[in-house]
Amino acid sequence: MTVVQTLLIYVGLPALGFAVMAVLVYAGGNGRSPRYRPGRDWNHEDVWYLPRPISSKAPAHSAPELTGGAAPAEGVRRTARGGASGTW
């Protein structure tokens, strides 16, 4: 084989494979918002996630009533009976 052929096969092909891998690793994945790391600020809005209704009576797009905002007026009935907390 000529020198050029040798170089192309034994150097070019691995380099090409390397480049393909690099592209897949660094260009793939979610680039829109950075991955969450503890200690970073959380600047997103507060969001609720609710399950789709269990009973067949409820229409598909209904959600349980939620009082607006996170601070209802004083005197709201206390519904909490237990649970747990955690920090990290």
Partner: peptide, 13 residues
């Protein structure tokens, strides 16, 4: 709360 690094689980009656 990822910003405050706090989680709460609340159960009802």
């Amino acid at each position: 709360s990822p910003g405050e690094r706090r989680l709460e689980i609340v159960t009802g009656e």
